[in-house]
Design a protein around this nucleic acid. Structure first.
Lengths: 211, 211
DNA sequence: GTCTATAAGAAGATAGAC
DNA sequence: GTCTATCTTCTTATAGAC
């Protein structure tokens, strides 16, 4: 990785831990292994580093949204998959979503930085909302909608059903961001949540194992 | 209100909007209507103002927790109320919780400040977790437990049921903190959520109006 | 592109008059 | 308790040699 990218990477780490104002240019330079003045050969000033991070974040998000769209489209094409989706597959769906958000290093640091800086700049809270609220609700909603169409799940209001599926995941995520030691407990809760979700929304005529 | 308290109040407002590091002592003094040096007659330094806010917050939280405990105990004593709780009463319960968190000025500013400053200091994230995650789950769980005992609601896992009740409320709260203009929409969603929650967890033999 | 030296400015805090 | 004036320190950013 070249110096220019390493600066971005170390800056993101520091910003996500301490917030923009509490990170000094010299701290970033230190981590990269150069002196502060050298850093100005790569970026005009401190703000430019921050802006570059946001730009990079948007680039990755768009890339990823495209990937999701393709998955979504694929899913729609062979919607057969969703007709016979099992409880275990639903759990896998939820766990993957959760673990991706939680463990992807880039994603995690971005989210922490956004959490800290969101009230500083409306644009940042917009990014946060889109990424962690509106987009997941919309994507998960699409999948659940398909399962309802396929007759696997049953509801009068898919929007609320989606909220019931995703809100607990979101809450467990904010817990683990703050207290990583609660991850094991959170994963157990997540699984119990999805099993109960499935039981609640399963078509009445469908019988569950062991009941 | 005397100057000492007005400093605390204005400081909290500013910290909750911009974060500690982005608020200057002169800004606080300005709002109070004095010059920065005068402020040092009331507090030793900037950090002391912040500490006093946290102390005041803890004081209020303890006071409030006491009040909740009493309500809880009262509720337990005449649990009769919960035997015949209606969907509308459940909605009122959720809305009150939501609107209290959202509109109580002190609570709102504290929550925003905690959200911004939580990664600076572990103690702050602990306060946040307790206040907005663990305490509500525990309190709501107690109420729902009573409703299950009374036979109004039915579940094999009250803990997950509580998560299903509270997580959407928590999520709507974080939405409104960031985008207050979505409050009306959020309140509608909240009501739909609780109606669906009630339908999902209502005892099978219970028939719902209009179905 | 990196360094040392340093300028420029911001923000916290104090001194001392009133 | 509040003010003006000022000190001190910290941080960003630039100059110019290598």
């Amino acid at each position: 990785m070249d110096t220019k990218h390493r600066i971005l990477d170390e800056a993101l780490t520091l910003f996500s831990e301490k917030g923009y104002a509490n990170v000094f240019v010299a701290d970033i330079a230190d981590r990269v292994g150069i002196k502060a003045p050298s850093l100005y050969k790569h970026y005009k000033n401190k703000q430019a580093i921050f802006d570059a991070i946001i730009e990079e974040m948007n680039r990755r998000f768009l890339e990823q949204a495209g990937a999701l769209q393709i998955n979504g489209t694929d899913a729609l094409v062979d919607a057969e998959i969703y007709k016979n989706i099992s409880e275990d597959q639903l759990i896998t769906l939820g766990k993957n979503l959760f673990l991706y958000f939680l463990h992807d290093e880039y994603t995690r640091r971005f989210r922490k930085m956004l959490t800290i800086e969101q009230f500083h700049d409306k644009k940042l809270s917009d990014v946060y909302m889109k990424k962690y609220v509106d987009d997941p609700l919309s994507y998960q909603g699409m999948l659940l909608e398909m399962m309802v169409s396929a007759g696997v799940l049953q509801t009068e209001n898919v929007e609320i059903m989606t909220l019931h599926f995703y809100a607990p995941i979101y809450m467990l995520l904010t817990i683990c961001d703050r207290e990583p030691e609660r991850e094991t407990e959170a994963l157990k809760t997540l699984e119990a949540h999805i099993r109960q979700f499935n039981r609640l929304y399963a078509r009445n005529e469908k019988k569950h194992s062991g009941q």
